[in-house]
Amino acid sequence: MDDKEVTNKYHLILEQIKRQIDSFDAKANILLAISGILSTVSVSLLPVTIKHSTQLSFLILLVIYTFLLIGSIFSFILVVIPRKRSKKIKKIQTNSNLYYWDLADAEPSEIRTEIQKVDLYHDDLTKQIKINSMVAKRKHKLLVFGIELLIVSLLLMFIAIMVHVFV
Rank of each mutant, 00 (worst) to 15 (best):
R83Q: 15
L46G: 05
I50G: 12
I92N: 07
S86I: 04
R85S: 10
I70C: 07
S39W: 01
V63K: 12
L46W: 10
I37H: 00
D22E: 15
S57H: 07
L59G: 05
T40G: 13
F67E: 00
E107Q: 04
N95Y: 11
K91M: 13
T40D: 06
R85L: 10
T66D: 04
R83K: 13
F67T: 02
K88I: 09
F76I: 09
P47T: 06
V80A: 02
V80S: 09
K27A: 09
A33K: 14
L98R: 10
T49H: 07
K27I: 06
L69V: 00
R112Y: 13
F58R: 06
A106K: 14
R83N: 10
I60R: 03
T94P: 03
V48T: 12
Y65I: 07
F76V: 03
V48E: 05
L59W: 05
T49A: 14
L59R: 08
Y65M: 15
A28D: 00
Q20E: 12
L103P: 05
R112H: 11
Y100V: 14
L45W: 05
I89F: 06
I21K: 12
Y100F: 15
Y99N: 07
A28E: 01
N29W: 00
N29Y: 02
Y99L: 13
A104Q: 07
T94K: 12
K90R: 14
F67H: 03
S96R: 04
D25I: 15
S42D: 02
I70Y: 08
L98A: 12
Q20Y: 10
L45P: 01
S35E: 02
I77E: 02
Q55D: 11
I37S: 05
V48W: 08
H52Y: 09
V48C: 05
L32H: 07
I37L: 14
A28R: 03
I37G: 13
N97Y: 07
Y99A: 02
G36Y: 03
I60L: 14
S75Y: 04
I64E: 01
I60S: 00
V80M: 13
F76N: 04
S86Q: 04
Q55N: 09
F24A: 03
L103S: 04
K91D: 06
S75M: 09
E107S: 07
T54Q: 12
S96Y: 06
R112G: 05
K91E: 13
